[in-house]
């Protein structure tokens, strides 16, 4: 067992006095994909934001390479952990695609230093990897929802993090880009050795890309395990209700979760 890149120990997360999740213990391994699943409003995004240091832990702590995030400088955290937020706030004044992606270098270069040639190479490589190199000069406001998502992902890649947190990365992506996203996430973890944590409401995508699944429900982490251990009717029905079914995929044998129409 490799040492975890990111650990949560007895973590309580929430906003101010409002606790959303408590008693969370979680290990995030390098080279692995961890999917957080759970019903709407269960606290997946809250947990993800706390893991990324955007929200302070109410109790317990998050450790990045053994060092607690509490008290760690925000910029140092951002060099190790990149988060692609779920909501891409549309601004009244859009930046260009390359300007938006280049912000990913700020944690490394500082906010006041000009970009170096090395930074520019990282930015170009990130845009190329997300297939948006040809959009570099376009304004964000002129992009489709799927293109805008890929800009956010490219910015996170430009941070050259060790840990990548993705909040509902499949939102707005059609099935072609969903499959590309799955390949990208797997390649980032399995080939580049990043630790990837992502929230997904689409359980079919969870089956395809996760190495480990953590089920969040009822103010706690219910269960953490392999795909086949968590995506089971007896585990999911108490959380999501009775109207779902799990089948074995006819080719791969992996679990496929489908909604069931109430009779």
């Amino acid at each position: 067992m490799k040492t975890p890149l990111l650990e949560a120990r007895d973590l309580t997360c929430g906003y101010g006095k409002c606790e959303v999740l408590s008693g969370v213990n979680l290990d995030v391994q390098p080279g692995k994909v961890l999917a957080l699943i759970g019903p709407n409003g269960a606290g997946k995004t809250t947990l993800l934001h706390t893991l990324g240091g955007l929200l302070p832990a109410l109790a317990g702590d998050v450790y990045c390479e053994g060092v607690p995030l509490r008290g760690k400088h925000a910029r140092a955290t951002a060099r190790a952990i990149a988060l692609a937020p779920q909501r891409v706030t549309p601004s009244a004044w859009p930046l260009s695609v390359s300007e938006a992606v280049s912000l990913g270098r700020a944690p490394h270069r500082g906010w006041f230093m000009p970009l170096t040639r090395e930074d520019k190479q990282v930015i170009d490589a990130s845009m190329a990897r997300m297939g948006i190199a040809t959009l570099a000069g376009r304004m964000l406001s002129t992009l489709s929802g799927g293109e805008a998502r890929r800009v956010v992902l490219a910015r996170a890649l430009a941070q050259t993090p060790k840990i990548l947190l993705l909040d509902e990365p499949a939102t707005y992506l059609d099935i072609k880009y969903q499959s590309e996203l799955v390949s990208l996430v797997r390649a980032l973890a399995h080939e580049d050795g990043l630790a990837v944590v992502l929230t997904l409401h689409d359980l079919a995508l969870v089956t395809l890309c996760a190495d480990t699944v953590a089920l969040v429900a009822g103010g706690a982490l219910r269960l953490t395990g392999a795909v086949g251990e968590v995506l089971r009717e007896d585990v999911l029905r108490p959380v999501y209700g009775e109207n779902l079914e799990v089948f074995a995929h006819p080719k791969s044998g992996l679990p496929v979760v489908l909604p069931r129409i109430a009779e």
């Binding site: 934001h49 990324g52 955007l54 400088h73 925000a74 910029r75 140092a76 955290t77 951002a78 060099r79 952990i81 990149a82 988060l83 692609a84 937020p85 909501r87 891409v88 706030t89 601004s91 004044w93 859009p94 930046l95 300007e99 938006a100 912000l103 990913g104 700020a106 944690p107 906010w111 006041f112 956010v152 910015r155 996170a156 941070q159």
Partner: peptide, 21 residues
Amino acid sequence: LMARPLDALLGGDDAARSLGL
């Protein structure tokens, strides 16, 4: 001098915070 932090804020607070701002 605050130009780049202002750019980061245009994308929303969460995005800016995740960049360590």
